[in-house]
Write a protein that binds this DNA or RNA. Structure first.
Lengths: 216, 216, 216, 216
DNA sequence: AATGAATGAGCTTTCATTCAT
DNA sequence: TATGAATGAAAGCTCATTCAT
């Protein structure tokens, strides 16, 4: 699922590089476990076993469980956001429909390999927040979710500028779009067969842009 | 949030009635806690404290934690499904748009007071699935989610018959609709201000039926 | 197993009589449960269910669980001891072998219907004695066990007087006899088929009196 | 009472050795506690305190309480059975009386340091059998008890072959012998003074072989 | 007197975290 | 730096006991 997906290639000292590698490996393992067990059920022992190191080692790279999982969310979110930024940048000037298509394609492709995480990102975090727990995680996840939403908003603003979106509802579109995307991902996850991205996007796009009502 | 939402009105012996009341009170408390802490973090002690009884009492009403939470999901789901069935029945024969509107209104109104639960119903179950865990809960939740989806499918089939939905994408609509509904609920939950249902439905409906693209 | 086995028929006021009946019924139930579950696993609820009353009622007749079980042991022990005393009294003057036979017959017949209890009496009590626990039960059981032993000792002394027992080992005989009796009961319990008492006693007696070595 | 009674002498890696040591230490502690409290009253906390570790540690060595206690019974039983097998082997060809003496000596010596356990092995298991409890322990204990009985049976068969035992009662002898042994141990335990083994065996043997009746 | 729901201390088990090697 | 056994604070569940009805 995630073969060293975060290959940051900043040239640095060997030691630092290896440390980065190890961190990344741990995060990959954490994602793997989290995908199978869920956020709460993800135990440090399982992550360690997945990486092939001992628990103690995890604590050489992360403050504690909370920080590890937070780092996982952050890294993956940054990856997605960076991807989306690149896509948005590259498609600048294109017609809205094309940009939206590219954007959704980007989200879906990335999220297919990280669905569980994406889902946690949107949903699971705010829960599991007993009063004593640091609200850090919650706030952070919300921030990330907001970042994602912001990209969609930017895109929608462009659609508005292009005259491709109805002005009266435009402020609702980002949210509705993300909702549809989520449902598509969710369904794909449950069917456990990776539906080709295009087959998922096309109806979504038609529905969103043209509506479900037939036209003459 | 949930003032005795399960209003069973079977006239019964006092003892039985009180037992039902107590059960309902526990479930309400459980929902409250679950809403704040999430499914996994919901501890028996917290539920007990919320009802104002001691732990032991919970076990007089429910086999164990698993059964308690399952009962909560079941009761709430049954409530929602019953509501939807009533709505669908009552609106039979009406034009699709009106039926859809009524349906969504129904879902939103009910779900506003039980958002977290609704969310758990759709999402959290499939996770937290360590081998030892009884698959009962998982299967059950999936079944309930499917029940919900089935209602939307019925509605969409009617839309198709009425010529109000495009045949080529109709099989995707239920899922997309639920996705949008979920995002609306989710947003409302996070903004913590109960947006009037109509204000939420209108754009959703316009987007779904007419699309986001402006018409001349 | 124990249909009102302790029918003390002291003529008393109706009220007192009924109270005694109830007490006896509870003890019978307790024995039944204890026989099936063991001393420690015997719960008040189970006893109550067995009698057909509610837990609270048990506490109207006995101080607490400890006292109830203690009373059970005491009553049954008194029954057995009284039986043995009667037997010893009645057989006074008979030859040793006959007295011993009658005695053992008495023990076995009584113990067959109360094997579990008999076993607890001899064995289980001394355990389950955390420092905080009242040593009352322990001391009491030991006392009862000693009472039983004393009867056998009396019998053996008579055997000695009659010249039917070897003087040099006579002080060991009571204990050895009880050990053999216990093993017989234990085996019968495990085989779950009530072997006729005579078939059990005969070999025991032959072994004890004549030894296992063949004679010409 | 039990100074590292399981002397496994397989030379192994240090780590493995220490793990074995720790396991053995835990079992010794468990036996100590069990001897004082009884099977059912033996709490994990107490065992941990006895070893001088914390509860969690116990679970690093044993699946759960049930497995720990089962392991204890198994190890001790294996020790005893191995001892008896060695004794029987070594005494092969000797006259019955000598063999029996050696055998009993063996049992008594070993059991003196493990009396409580021995007692549990023979007695306590079959009790405490609520339906939900895994029948594993019960069956296992019965099996071990049977193993012990089998040894005695073998010995008695040899006695029969040697013409040292009466054929008509030989099938009862193993049980009766074990009963006498048990009573001897039981008494010693209660007197809390370790009577010299010979002083216990001699009367037992005389009684069993020659009977209690004086001979001319 | 009888009831049985409520209580809460007590027990087993889990798992994030530490620290000696 | 890596290890993994030890730790001990939780958390789920049980059951003797109480007390309002």
């Amino acid at each position: 699922m995630n073969p060293r997906s975060t290959s940051r290639t900043k040239p640095q000292s060997l030691r630092v590089r290896m440390k980065e590698e190890a961190r990344a490996a741990i995060l990959d393992a954490a994602e793997q476990v989290l995908s199978e067990q869920g956020l709460h059920a993800t135990r440090m022992d399982d992550i360690a076993a997945q990486v092939g190191v001992s628990v103690g080692t995890l604590y050489n790279y992360f403050e504690d469980r909370q920080q590890l999982l937070l780092a996982l969310l952050e890294v993956r979110a940054r990856d997605l956001l960076a991807l989306l930024d690149a896509e948005l940048e590259q498609s600048q000037g294109s017609p809205y429909r094309a940009r939206l298509y590219g954007f959704l394609r980007c989200v879906l492709e990335h999220s297919q390999s990280h669905f569980r995480l994406f889902s946690v990102l949107l949903e699971e975090g705010p829960r599991h927040s007993r009063p004593k727990d640091e609200p850090a995680q919650r706030r952070y996840q919300q921030e990330l979710a907001r970042e994602l939403l912001r990209r969609v908003e930017l895109l929608c603003e462009d659609g508005l500028r292009q005259g491709a979106l109805r002005p009266e509802d435009v402020r609702h579109y980002p949210m509705l779009l993300l909702g549809m995307v989520h449902s598509v991902l969710f369904q794909q996850f449950h069917m456990k067969q990776p539906v080709p991205v295009d087959e998922s996007i096309a109806p979504l796009l038609r529905c969103f842009l043209d509506g479900a009502t037939p036209r003459p």
